[in-house]
Design a protein around this nucleic acid. Structure first.
Lengths: 204, 204
DNA sequence: ACATCATTGTTGTCAATGACTACATTCTTG
DNA sequence: CAAGAATGTAGTCATTGACAACAATGATGT
């Protein structure tokens, strides 16, 4: 009846739903996320989301998946940009990339980590997740092979750095680190930790 | 009508609600938490929770508050038990206490951190939260005053250690650290980081 | 071209939920 | 022991997620 408004087939509903959902998520939180409200917002019927997300949890999982994919893309770009640079510089770049993402999309990040806790992770979510968390261990492994840091179990070393970055992210999201000081604090913290892991003891 | 079953006044409904809510939380997740279901479980009417928690969010906030209080108590006990011990030992004890709590109550911890993200924190929640996170900075400050670690800004140092512990917690909750190896890994990671922060460079 | 069928969107409905109101029972306290 | 505060109950409402039956569009093979 209203082909002027929109054709019967939206044509891009899935993407729009994800977009609107992310906006609503950042604005009102996960608890307030309502499929029907999203439908209203997009001018579609209340049942149309079902064609793209069988259940509300599926929409949430899809949100988490694209979140991890973006997370991954940003980290990959950061490592690429730092190619050839100092080992520590690369690590710092990736950490900053993580933090930048966290500060830009705090609610999405929270949703991502909540989704990670699901007992049965959807395969795509698992893939996106693994890829997103592969960068730091890879850089560490390279640094280890170059003899820059203590040998030991690479898994544990990655754990240490991963813990630091993850913790920094959690703290930064809480607003405990003011925006600009990030570029100062992150290299400092990374430096302190690397200092404890490095083979040579150059700096004080 | 049924004084045999239970008296008109439950007498302890608030506590029981919190208990049942925590159980349901760990069993089925926050999303599935239902006030009516809790009421049924406790054999009370569907409206009775309102007398104790005006809104569902209030129940969640109360859950988060008791969570932080327990968190705080455990950390306090750990520091007390390690009184007089090595600086590093005390830090490790607190970190282990944090991790122990996290592994015992993963869903509650997730809820706590989600609750922390609320724009307007209830005062009691804020108090409990601040108290729970006061232990590591205090130990660090003591260590700093004793000249064990680099002077610098104490806030930043606390940030570093806090980040590490928080990160370890997040990783441990994911099951990435198998139960027993905690006692090995945590001191190791703490040692590595402290190594980067310490004034003297004793160990390799 | 065009019939067939899968996609995608719509309307209608249902049970469950959180919140609200009016009312009942019990406890407290002056 | 009377008055009122606490606490619990029954009833109701709008909203929600899920489901089913149906409609419109798009794609495919011949």
């Amino acid at each position: 009846m209203k082909p002027a408004n929109h054709p019967y087939h939206h044509g891009n509903l899935r993407q729009e739903l994800l977009r609107a959902a992310e906006a609503a998520l950042e604005a009102r939180g996960v608890q307030q996320l309502s499929l029907r409200e999203l439908s209203r917002e997009l001018g579609v019927s209340h049942a149309s989301p079902q064609r793209h997300f069988a259940t509300k949890q599926d929409l949430i999982n899809a949100l988490a998946t694209v979140g991890f994919q973006r997370f991954d893309a940003i980290a990959a770009k950061a490592t690429a940009a730092a190619r050839g640079q100092d080992f520590k510089a690369r690590l710092t770049k990736v950490a900053l990339a993580h933090l930048g993402f966290a500060l830009k999309h705090p609610a999405l990040l929270a949703l991502m980590f909540e989704a990670k806790r699901q007992p049965a992770l959807p395969p795509e979510l698992l893939t996106a997740l693994q890829s997103a968390f592969s960068h730091i261990p890879r850089i560490l492994k390279e640094g280890q092979e170059a003899g820059k840091i203590v040998p030991g179990d690479p898994h544990r070393l990655a754990l240490t750095i991963g813990a630091v970055v993850q913790g920094l992210v959690a703290i930064a999201v809480d607003g405990k680190i003011k925006g600009d000081s990030l570029k100062v604090i992150v290299p400092e913290v990374i430096g302190q930790v690397l200092n404890g892991l490095s083979t040579g003891k150059a700096k004080a």
